[in-house]
């Protein structure tokens, strides 16, 4: 009987892990419908959308097109994957074959309406610094206008994310959203999606981009190609709250209460039986 009980205990501990295990991985095949990417390769994004640049000036998206574009959608207060992705990008950009600002441009758009141009500016300074000295430019700095950090009004954000099929969700802490680079052709046509799939734990840049991948993506965008079919498991950016956790907390609460109850009963037992066991109790009250 004891053996069977032991078996059940250990089995339940071990299986608890496998039941809740892999649903909670950051990578899963597709979005849940609410969050994810619905590829719209070959379609055009509305170029007349208005955003604000880092100085707070209104800027039309078409003013930034005209050359191949790497579009990233993040929110600026993110403390999870967004900064790591932008950091990885900042390390890859100086190594690309194409000339920044001339042959291509990076546009980072915040899908959080609360984000302000000031935040965008400080982020831009941060990532410009992360890029470091850029040897190919005459003044050794990465061109300012080659990487724009935009914020926008609600409607523009809505239209842009709809147009590229980017689905995100507001959470208790920030947002849940996919981590992806979108290549746009000079005319605003969506040329392809590049999914971030790998997170290298413990590295100083856990998300990295190979210059080969980006070169190929930009070249395709420059020719106006629509590249599809590279469907991979993609990374999501979200606050980590495993679904099994609340069950675990309930389990803890029950065990804790049982322990507490055991202690209380022990105390009551000691009190009640002390008359029987303790000698000389009658002297206690004596002065």
């Amino acid at each position: 009987m004891k053996k069977i009980l032991w078996f059940i205990c250990i089995w339940s501990i071990l299986s608890a892990n496998s039941i809740y295990g892999h649903e909670t991985l950051g990578t899963s095949d597709a979005g849940t419908g609410e969050m994810g990417i619905e590829e719209k390769t070959g379609q055009r994004i509305p170029a007349n959308l208005v955003f604000y640049d880092e100085e707070g000036n209104r800027i039309k998206l078409e003013a930034l097109l005209g050359k191949p574009v790497i579009l990233t959608l993040v929110y600026y207060t993110c403390e999870h994957v967004c900064p790591l992705m932008l950091g990885g990008l900042s390390q890859a950009l100086p190594r690309l074959a194409a000339a920044p600002g001339k042959d291509y441009r990076v546009i980072t758009v915040s899908f959080d309406v609360e984000d302000k141009p000031q935040t965008a500016l400080s982020l831009k300074k941060n990532y410009m610094k992360a890029i470091g000295p850029f040897d190919r430019a005459p003044d050794k700095t990465f061109p300012e206008n080659a990487w724009k950090f935009l914020t926008g009004p609600k409607e523009s954000i809505h239209d842009l994310t709809e147009a590229v099929g980017f689905k995100y969700r507001k959470d208790i802490h920030g947002f849940s959203h996919p981590v992806v680079l979108i290549f746009l052709a000079p005319d605003g046509k969506i040329s392809g999606y590049f999914y971030v799939t790998k997170f290298q734990y413990g590295q100083s840049y856990p998300i990295t981009f190979s210059s080969y991948d980006l070169n190929v993506g930009l070249a395709g965008a420059a020719q106006g190609k629509a590249v599809t079919g590279i469907k991979k498991a993609l990374l999501y950016c979200f606050s980590h709250e495993p679904p099994g956790q609340s069950k675990f907390f309930n389990f803890m609460a029950v065990v804790g209460l049982i322990t507490l109850a055991a202690m209380v009963s022990f105390f009551i037992y000691l009190q009640v039986t002390s008359r029987r066991y303790r000698r000389g109790k009658e002297y206690d009250a004596e002065k």
Binding site: L14, A16, N17, Y20, G21, H22, E23, L25, P242
Partner: peptide
């Protein structure tokens, strides 16, 4: 390999 504290297995290091 039980992952009570391992995020890749649904656990939580903060726990």
């Amino acid at each position: 390999g039980v992952g009570f504290f391992d995020p890749t297995k649904g656990g939580d290091p903060i726990l």
